[in-house]
Design a protein around this nucleic acid. Structure first.
Lengths: 168, 168
DNA sequence: ATATCTGCAAATGTTTTGCACTTTT
DNA sequence: AAAAGTGCAAAACATTTGCAGATAT
């Protein structure tokens, strides 16, 4: 799942090319962010990434994180999502197929899914109205009933929180 | 399309019942907001609603608009959406069937659509993973190619803007 | 060299909140 | 009278920006 060392370095190089094409520069901060971001499992906010970098002893500012995140998104290193909770969330885009998200409205757990038929229908809908589909955003807000009954839901969200904190 | 006078008054009454059930009070501001909101076509932000109320000579504060909007949403008078552009958008929920949105990434025009199959598949996906679907959010980001070629796209977005301003 | 970056702190824009006062019930 | 609502101004947030100094090309 996690990209190998080589894959990460290849991504760093690819990002450097992306930057050069637009007359932008590769910097220590940007290079570090590519590496850190690709090592991450799950979703993260700008602030979470910033804190992780600080913990790692890197020298960055929040402003740089935001500025870089925009570039990483354009460069295809990360993908950004809006889960309607006030802050943008990112996940690494390398080696990951497209997917949508289910969000538990009780514990905020995020579960990924893909559905070919839905994907296909989206194109049909857009074309049917004379448009070209460029992108989409689909979130299913759900409750995980049995989990809640058993308390597993809370345990899970705590576990996830700990994990993403720990490994980042 | 626009609800009749009677429908609006029925909605005001229904909202009053909703409030009473939760030991909340009906006020002049809330009553006015129900009426204004139900007369609106299209989408609006909290700020747009606030300005409309001021223009109408109503006495409200931004804080009250936000507080009321949350209640109107819970009470089913409006529906809120997150189009990933930094501010929440609302539309009246009365007499409107459920629909999703296509947003033109060039001119920000919003086009509504419904697709039964997609709706159905969403439930299947959630249930298939053992969850209960409570809500969903689907946006298709599109470009309206011919419109742009002809300039119709810009004209349309201007028209829409004017209309929603005018009639509100 | 020179264009681009960075950090900082200040600004932004939206939404929320504390509090004293007003209005519903 | 008691409980809830309101306006105001201040706070809270996430995010962006101006600028002077630092860094990549």
């Amino acid at each position: 799942m996690k990209p190998t060392e080589d894959e990460v370095e290849a991504a760093v190089t690819a990002f450097e090319v992306f930057l050069r094409d637009r007359q932008l520069k590769m910097t220590e901060q940007r290079r570090t962010m590519v590496r850190v971001v690709l090592a991450k499992r799950g979703h993260f906010t700008a602030d979470e990434l910033y804190r992780k970098l600080l913990t790692d002893g890197e020298s960055v500012s929040m402003a740089t994180v935001y500025r870089a995140l925009a570039l990483l998104e354009e460069g295809g290193v990360v993908e950004g999502h809006d889960f309607a909770d006030g802050q943008r969330r990112y996940e690494r885009a390398l080696d990951r197929e497209h997917h949508d998200h289910m969000i538990c409205v009780d514990c905020r757990a995020v579960i990924e899914f893909t559905n070919e038929q839905i994907e296909h229908l989206q194109h049909e809908v857009a074309q049917g109205s004379g448009f070209t589909l460029k992108d989409h955003s689909l979130q299913l807000f759900v409750t995980c009933d049995e989990w809640h009954a058993s308390g597993a839901c809370e345990r899970r969200s705590q576990r996830e929180a700990r994990r993403s904190e720990a490994q980042a």
